[in-house]
Write a protein that binds this DNA or RNA. Structure first.
Lengths: 143, 143
DNA sequence: ATGCAATTGCAAATCGTTTGCAATAATGGC
DNA sequence: GCCATTATTGCAAACGATTTGCAATTGCAT
């Protein structure tokens, strides 16, 4: 278990702070995000939302994700192949290991790697704005 | 300069070995790849190809890239936002630093990071099949 | 040269995502 | 609480990157 999620973000407060309206679709969507442990894509969020209110549209899911992303309330990950998958922001920074068999995402963190990345960028004359480190692998037999 | 390109791959030989036909479009496309130092996308390769033979189609560029990728002759990179960009395989493994201002790609390599990645994956019970490490940054003023 | 299968160009289809628009609903002022 | 105004919605159509079906063309072994 590398779960980092501890404090559930108060999305409604963030929305209010951003000066946007708290609508029924938004309430439902952030409700789903709040108690999500995995990294669902827009379609999956849409499915869960429709189960609550069948009138919600996929467009609204996309729009809401973009809004929340803009507020920094969620992170978007474009793992290989598939559609974007989302994760609540707020936990501390981490990278991802993707199980290529199941699509499962495992979070991990390595200060050492971060540090090396910074050294490398600096030696090339760059400041890192952000980075992407994804390991794609499969469960190994031998423990 | 972190250019690793030394030995130009003989794409035609690779195609022949793969038992596929050496057609005029393919000859032109691999010709372009052969003397390419950057990481062009399909459209850019198409443009360069059309300059040589205006009858070449974008579909053929895509088909050829997929073919070469399947042969392991080129690598495909899906950097943030944009379309896939290609690079000849054959040089030794490296990761990428993308200049978010210009789109320029700088190659780098860190055995230390690779090693740490393996340790992390292993500790999580996984074997790494492949990975993706991309640094997105901008040139820094202070040297 | 000849024939057949591989390959092409084109247009239409696909996938994930975004957008224009008219209809609807959330909020601030009363 | 009611209204007006304005943001937000659902829908369908547009989107960009890439893939595909198909009939026409081409490479290549004979």
């Amino acid at each position: 278990m590398t779960r980092t999620a501890i404090q559930k973000p108060d999305y409604e407060a963030e929305l209010r702070k951003a000066g946007v309206r708290i609508t029924r679709p938004r309430r439902i969507i952030v409700g789903i995000l709040t108690d999500t442990e995995d990294h669902p894509d827009a379609l999956e969020i849409f499915r869960r939302a429709v189960a609550i209110d069948s009138s919600i549209s996929l467009s609204t899911v996309y729009r809401t994700m973009k809004l929340l992303e803009g507020l920094g309330a969620i992170h978007r990950h474009a793992f290989e192949g598939g559609p974007s998958r989302f994760e609540q922001a707020g936990g501390d920074h981490h990278d991802h290991l993707i199980d290529i068999e199941t699509g499962d995402v495992i979070e991990f963190k390595s200060d050492r790697i971060e540090q090396l990345q910074n050294e490398i960028a600096r030696s090339l004359g760059y400041d890192i704005v952000h980075h992407r480190l994804e390991l794609y692998g499969r469960k190994c037999k031998v423990k």
